[in-house]
Design a protein around this nucleic acid. Sequence first.
DNA 1: GAATTATATACCGATATAGGAATATGTCAA
DNA 2: TTGACATATTCCTATATCGGTATATAATTC
Lengths: 118, 118
Amino acid sequence: MARAATTADAFNAVAEPRRRQILDVLSGGERPVNDLVRLVGLAQPLVSKHLRVLREVGLVGVRDEGRQRMYSVNGQPLKPIHDWVKTYERSWSRRFDRLDVVLEELKEVKEDDDGEDE
Amino acid sequence: MARAATTADAFNAVAEPRRRQILDVLSGGERPVNDLVRLVGLAQPLVSKHLRVLREVGLVGVRDEGRQRMYSVNGQPLKPIHDWVKTYERSWSRRFDRLDVVLEELKEVKEDDDGEDE
DNA sequence: GAATTATATACCGATATAGGAATATGTCAA
DNA sequence: TTGACATATTCCTATATCGGTATATAATTC
């Protein structure tokens, strides 16, 4: 065995800076590939390949529009990352200094997020 | 050029499942290497190598204690990941359905996190 | 000092990339 | 149909791993 496949999950897909850059551009709205090529400053085949990886983990969607393919973001697969990282928030956030605030947050999360998804 | 170096940043360091596992164990408190070997079920040299990567991005710290080396977690380098992922929270959180809640959150963040770090 | 324990490093093999160049596929227009 | 444009795929090379085995370093005990 060797290195784990990058296309395996969102963690790996997003570890590549160019792919984060692509997502950042797309977060401003749907874009055809050529826009990304121009905005990210990467060769067209490379952009297509990165988009393939992002598609495979569900981070982007495509829609055919004439001879263009419109790509859009879907952040849902990022939720596991968010959830995992959040458990370490204590390490950097001053918010966790006071217990009462922590409890306040927990209550709030329960109210707003209950039955969120999955 | 080939694949980006894993040791480059927290994004890559954390893309490896075994390393997340190690961090998760350490989040329960300081541990010597052998504990990790046992708990993660990985060969000792592999654990040491993963720890090296984690050390290089600042995600763990070490403390010498006799002939053991006590490792501990430092989540600070995860903050950039948290911040980046958070901008996509809209995609999965029902919390963003109502504008008033969004504004409430923004206000709250400003109060609690102001002048956090860096 | 020798044996033991704890950890780190070096070397190896297999593999999965990232980027580049060339080419294939697909759509529209004249 | 031919040509132009948009995008995807294939083939290639270099490299950075991950896991494994063997070994080196370091501290403790006898």
